[in-house]
Simulated scan of single mutants.
Amino acid sequence: MSTATGVRVAAMRPEHATAVLEIYRLGIDEQNATFETAAPTWEVFDAAKSAEHRFVAVDDDGQVVGWAAVVPVSDRCAYAGVVEHSVYVHPDARGRGVGLALLTALITSTEAAGIWTIQSGVFPENTASLALHQRAGFRVIGTRERIGRHSGRWRDVVLIERRSPVID
């Protein structure tokens, strides 16, 4: 899949592991993307993410500049169409539409599979992520206040979701 951003969105494969985990680590180090404190091994990452719905953005030089993936929110059948997603863009590639290209691919993929809700939690300080998600059709559900401690301080999380307009 090609985009106007100068990146190609493709299925995430094992050969992308090093770049994907490095981009994840960079996001973790900024301390406004996740409660995680270290990137997992590829084996742990690979086992946790749904194989059908994970993508990388590759630039014209063949470098991975971002990724998106989902995990089921529950194994209960009532939640079969609900996933939680992550999207990370390399700091040097931000502001070029990479995140929107990844979210667009993710939405297309999940809707084709009958998934009706994509959700996530975003730190309120991560205003760029909140703006990106709004452009991609996500809405704010609410804020979970002081939901967890991160680097010694309590953090709020803004809950966002996108309900598919084509899955009923």
Rank of each mutant, 00 (worst) to 15 (best):
S50E: 13
V82R: 14
G27Y: 04
S151A: 11
W154A: 12
H85Q: 14
H150F: 07
E111F: 12
A131P: 09
G66W: 07
C77S: 11
W67G: 08
P72F: 06
D156G: 06
Y79P: 07
I107S: 07
W67K: 04
E43T: 07
R155E: 05
G99H: 08
D75P: 02
G121R: 08
R146A: 15
A39K: 03
V166H: 13
G121D: 03
D61K: 12
E30Q: 10
R25H: 01
G137P: 09
L130E: 09
A57R: 14
R96G: 06
A80P: 05
Q134N: 08
G137S: 08
T127H: 07
S74E: 06
Q31S: 10
V122L: 05
G114A: 11
D60A: 15
E36Y: 00
I28F: 02
G97V: 13
H53A: 07
A47M: 01
D60C: 08
P40W: 04
V98P: 11
I28A: 00
L102H: 12
W67A: 12
D59Y: 11
L130G: 12
A47R: 05
D168T: 10
S164A: 10
L132C: 06
H85M: 14
V44D: 06
R76C: 10
R94C: 00
R162V: 01
A51N: 03
S164T: 10
V158K: 00
S151M: 05
H133G: 01
G152R: 03
F138S: 04
R149G: 01
R96E: 09
V56P: 06
V83D: 11
V122D: 08
W116L: 13
T34N: 03
R25A: 14
H150S: 13
E145D: 09
F55K: 10
G95R: 11
I28P: 03
V158T: 11
V140G: 02
A93T: 07
Y79E: 06
T37N: 07
V20M: 05
K49W: 05
S74V: 04
A78N: 14
Y88R: 00
V64S: 01
G142P: 09
L103R: 09
H90T: 03
H16S: 02
